Amino acid sequence: MKGRVLVIAGSDSGGGAGIQADIKTITALGGYAATAITALTAQDTNGVHGVMPVPPGFVGQQIDCVVRDIGADAFKTGMLDRVEIIELVADRIELHPGLAFVLDPVMVAKGGARLLAMDAVGSLKGRLVPLASVITPNVPEAEVLAGRSIRSLDEMKAAAEGLLALGAPAVLLKGGHLDGDVVMDLLATRDGVEMFEAPRIVTRHTHGTGCTLASAIATGLAQGMTLRQSVLRGRAYVRTAIRNAPGYGAGHGPLDHGITIDPARLDY
C-alpha cells in the first residue's frame, strides 16, 4: 500500500459515486484512502433523493485529524456544495502548498440533481482552482467554469485555455458528453495539449465515472507518478471498470471498482 489520499467530498448511499467510489478506487490502485465527508446523500442509480449537509466546522475537524495523525500525499475534492465548505477547504489546502491536489468540480449528479450551489461557483473558481495541481471537469462543468459553450474539439481546446488562465497548471477536460463514437479527453498544461481518445463504451452503467477518474489520478500522484502517467492509468482503470460493470440498479448503474489493474505499471 503506497500513497495516502485524503478525499474531501460527499457520500453516496448507493455506493457508485462520491466517497464510496473514491475509497474503492484508491484501494484498488494500491493507495490508502482517508476521508472528510462534506454532505450525506440519499442516492441510488435513479438519482439523488435527499442531501444532508455536514457542518463546516466538522468537515474541518475531519481534515485536521487525518493530516495531523496519518498524513497525506495528495488531496482530492469532489462534492463541495456550499461557499462555506469551499472557503474552509481552500484554507486547509493552502497550509500544504507542496501537496498534489486533484480538483473534481462536481456540480450536477448523473441523474440531474444540483450538487453545487450557484452562488458557490465564484468561490470554486477564485479560491480552489488556483490551488489545484489539475482540475478534471466534464464538458458541462467546463462550460460553467470557462463561461462558454463546448460543442467540438476546437471549443474544448479553447475552454481548456480559459481554465488554465484561472490559475490551474493543468486541466483534464473530459469529452464524454459530446456526441460521437469516439470519446476524446484533453489534457492541457502550460506546455501544450495532448489528446486521449478511445471508442465509446455504449452502456447506462456509468455512475461515478468522474469521481473514479479523479481519485485514480490523485492516487497516481500520491504514489509519485507523473500527471500523464496518472491520467493514462486512471483512464485504463475507468474503462475496464465500465466494461465489467455489474449491472446493478434501474438507472445509471455503478462500475466494477473491484477490477484490478497493476498499480506499478507505467506503460498504459
Rank of each mutant, 00 (worst) to 15 (best):
L232F: 01
T209S: 00
D44W: 08
G180V: 00
Q62I: 07
R92K: 15
A218L: 10
P130A: 05
A160C: 01
S123R: 15
G71I: 00
A9I: 11
H205T: 04
D256Y: 15
A216L: 01
D185I: 00
G60L: 09
M118E: 13
G249E: 03
R92Q: 15
L266W: 07
M225A: 05
A132T: 04
L187A: 05
L178I: 01
D69H: 03
G10F: 03
T260V: 14
G78W: 09
K24V: 06
A9Y: 08
L128N: 09
R68C: 07
F196C: 09
S230K: 04
V144I: 14
R92C: 15
L153Q: 06
L40V: 03
T35E: 06
D256W: 14
A250N: 13
G176L: 05
A113Y: 00
G10W: 03
T212P: 02
V102C: 06
R92G: 11
L221E: 08
V134N: 11
G224P: 05
S11P: 02
V144P: 08
T219R: 07
V54E: 04
F75L: 05
C65M: 15
A34T: 15
L95N: 15
A132S: 12
G247F: 05
A90W: 01
E143P: 07
L232H: 01
G162D: 06
T45K: 09
E87S: 10
G180D: 08
L187W: 01
P55A: 15
I70G: 08
P55H: 14
V83H: 01
P56H: 12
H205V: 05
G175N: 07
I19W: 06
